Simulated assay, not measured.
Amino acid sequence: MDDPILPAPAMVYRSMGSGPSWQRIGAGVMDKSGIANDQRDVRPATWSLIYVLRGRGVYRDQDGREWALSPGWCFQRLPDRRHSTVLDPASGWRECFIDLNPALQRVLASMQALRSETPAWHWGLDAGRVQRFVDVIVALRHAGERALPGLCLDVMRLAIDAQPDPSAVAAGEDAIDRACRALAADPAGRVDLRTWCRGKGLDYERFRKDFQRRLGMPPGQYRIRRRIDRACELLETTELPIAVIANELGYPSPYEFSAQFRARMGLPPTRYRAR
């Protein structure tokens, strides 16, 4: 390990039976430092559980709901359910993951052991939990064929143990989660957070410090990041002129939009669109 709680990148898959490649189980550690658009509106063929070890990002489900991701968070990639994950490329993202084939996922979901209604939740960053992922990776790599059924049970047990308590998830819908959603829904910046906090009965300075501690950036920087995320989406999926995008996102002029986009992404909007 290159850190007491950060295992080195590794990945292993084992086939289950003689079916297609997605009929398998897998586990690994991935380093995605420098990556921004990790998954954009994808429909995965397998079920995955991702456990965030380092970095910051956003998970967006097919209904437009969003969760801010940071170390200790888990999220699911659900078979045939569209979702996106956008990462902060400067945050040094690293994750553990396990994969199950759809047949196993359906069995567990039918018993309500996997909760698809909660795609992302905070599990807490813990060295013992990280070690469980590492143990599964090592076992999958070295196990003989006769040991695979038992290892499959180990992967399923880890998937179940990581699932959130429904009551805890409901209680965890705190002010920072709500603020992140409000900022994501308002890329043009019309939401004034001081006014928003007053309406929720919150002290703004305490909220700002809690926000910084949770996400590793102040609310203003988070708003800029979400604004640039939206700009990338519009540049990739529409032919709207740069001036129209700048206006939609609340920039005073296309020049200010281009300057902030370039500072964040390393290239101007026109070159980003032409890639």
Rank of each mutant, 00 (worst) to 15 (best):
G64H: 01
D31I: 14
I176C: 06
L78K: 02
K32S: 14
A246Q: 09
V29Q: 08
I137E: 00
D99Q: 09
L249F: 04
P166H: 11
A263W: 08
P241D: 04
D177T: 15
M1R: 04
D154P: 07
M111N: 12
D38Y: 10
R24W: 09
S48I: 00
R264H: 12
I5C: 11
S33F: 07
A147W: 04
G72Q: 09
A185D: 11
D80K: 02
T85C: 03
G189L: 10
A68V: 03
L6M: 11
P218K: 03
V86G: 07
D63W: 02
W196S: 01
P254G: 15
D135G: 11
A175D: 15
T270H: 07
R82V: 06
R115N: 12
D192R: 14
D126N: 15
Q163R: 09
L104P: 02
C96K: 00
L49Y: 06
Q39Y: 08
G57W: 01
A36V: 07
A246C: 02
S110T: 12
R178N: 15
G55K: 06
R230E: 14
R273C: 02
K200D: 02
R194F: 01
L78N: 03
R24G: 12
D31K: 13
I35N: 01
R223C: 05
A184W: 15
A231W: 00
I98C: 05
A162F: 09
S21E: 15
P71Y: 02
V138R: 10
A27S: 09
D135V: 08
P149C: 04
Q23M: 13
G150K: 04
A147M: 06
D80A: 07
I25Y: 12
A274H: 10
L87F: 11
R106Q: 14
P119R: 10
M30G: 09
Q221F: 09
R213W: 14
A243V: 07
C232S: 09
I245E: 04
L49Q: 02
G216K: 04
Y59K: 00
P268N: 05
R65D: 08
P44K: 05
A171N: 08
V58F: 12
E117F: 07
V134M: 00
A10D: 14
T46P: 04
E256Q: 11
P71V: 01
I242V: 15
Q221H: 14
A113E: 05
Q112L: 15
G189A: 08
V86R: 07
P187W: 14
L87D: 05
Q221T: 12
F133H: 14
A90I: 00
F207W: 02
S21R: 13
I245S: 03
G34R: 11
T270G: 06
D165Y: 09
E205K: 05
G216Q: 10
R178M: 10
D229S: 08
E233Y: 11
A175L: 13
C180Y: 07
